[in-house]
Design a binder for these strands. Sequence first.
DNA 1: TGATTTGCCTGACATTAGTCCGATAAATGG
DNA 2: CCATTTATCGGACTAATGTCAGGCAAATCA
Lengths: 291, 291
Amino acid sequence: MLDDIARLRRFNRAVTREVGALDTSFLGRGRPLGAARVLQLVRPEGTDVAVIRDTLDLDSGLMSRFLRSLEREGLIATATDPGDRRRRIARLTEAGRQEMAAYDHIGRDRAARLVARAGSRSTEVLAAMDLIATLLNRDHLTVRPADPDSPEVQSCWQAYFDELLVRVPAARSGTFTLPEPGAPAYRPPQGRCLVAWSDDLPVGCVALRPLDTATAEVKRLWVHDSARGQGLARRLMQTIEDEARDMGLHLLKLDTNSALSEALALYRATGWHETAPYTGAPADVWLEKRL
Amino acid sequence: MLDDIARLRRFNRAVTREVGALDTSFLGRGRPLGAARVLQLVRPEGTDVAVIRDTLDLDSGLMSRFLRSLEREGLIATATDPGDRRRRIARLTEAGRQEMAAYDHIGRDRAARLVARAGSRSTEVLAAMDLIATLLNRDHLTVRPADPDSPEVQSCWQAYFDELLVRVPAARSGTFTLPEPGAPAYRPPQGRCLVAWSDDLPVGCVALRPLDTATAEVKRLWVHDSARGQGLARRLMQTIEDEARDMGLHLLKLDTNSALSEALALYRATGWHETAPYTGAPADVWLEKRL
DNA sequence: TGATTTGCCTGACATTAGTCCGATAAATGG
DNA sequence: CCATTTATCGGACTAATGTCAGGCAAATCA
């Protein structure tokens, strides 16, 4: 049997070849790779030059020259950051947007071919890619507030409900309704809604909804399959509890189901205690935590 | 929900960053990437220079300069191929072997760290990597004869048996014994043993064992989980049947179990027909094919 | 306020990668 | 045998990348 290391290195070889091919295919638009990579990171609304430099790990001189060259091509425009006038902000021009669309097309094309090649196993392959990408991105996981009506939150909640239906049979008789668009329940100032991002994939969420002036309820803690086993749920709970403290709340409650054993173990391990039932089925466990 | 293409591109970004770090780690030993890549392909016993040039797709001038530079460093020695004195053969010197060991150490180190980082999910992550690597390597899958006593064949057969035990409960009462080392059953001239390779991972096997002068039995058709759904089993069967024809055989037999439905479907779709039972449990289907 | 730090820019320079061409020697094919 | 092809080599050249130092203006800190 090949050992783990050998398997990983085989993966590395295969992926290196693929990435190399992707890089050279970007060269097809008559622009050196360095400049192309910078262009990829300039957003239409504008991106901080230092951020680009940092993510690509470029020398400031080299970075500057890439910017000048893209500027000469008319693809980007730079302006000084009004907040800190040493810094510069680069944004895409209309021509730049068109050029980016062309790059995007190349990328989507290659990606679509690969998905097609996976044939009947494409679902499995994509899940495998999610798992690996989340692992590689692990140090870059960020938790940010989100709008409850945004597509990312909706997709997280949908995933949460779908899983609940699988794991808690009793939930099938209930009905889940997403809050009405614009409803204030999960929005500041009374509520909160957090999403954890791995690059551009939402991999977790948690929400807070007011019960009364000093009490709120934690709802919809969910972690994407690819991100489990990395302590993300704990981090989300920690963040939402900190938020609650900052909001001046004194007591948090939540309801859950005993079938969700990992979640329950997490709650019990982080200071949550049994409390009186305050909701009905499918919940069968009610917890509270004093802040 | 993010669409498939977006998920794949997130994967691409994540591994591109990782691969970039790998590239610079090669530079960590004070040698440009090009020369390092050439060095990786020089085997201690000697490698044909044209083969290296071909796999890396290098210009002959560039290749020549890499060789000179590695020679100046004392890592390789080149000699003319006695068979064709236009060609050259490069082989590692003792210093080269040590240098390669150092590169190997860097690679193993990085790999081990990543496996460790996956923590409780490392098994899953490695399976995901196998799946993706096999998909990316798909066009490079090769089927080659193998020695039945070799570790790769042993590992394939072990995997075959393990899976049989899971899928055919009746098999548990039987005992599986690997043929004795050196036994002639699966070796030419009477028998055959084939292994399918994806890079350095054995992803499939099939064997042929003589029954009498005109008849042989196909045994141990197995495909690695990561390589299923790509027609590899069909290709292995095709190859072994061609071999049997070349050996002058007129009839092939095999026994299997009805629980192995995909295999059975493949046999039935490729000209195999029911025949009289010639073995006992756990087999419950017996097929033959006239060549 | 003045010294120091930070972020960006430019010029000078080195290294690496990649291409093209001609030379050479060996093999191949009539 | 001679013409052609093949494999390698080295020189000339270009493009791209990477490195370093100095300059400048804005921000920060004591």
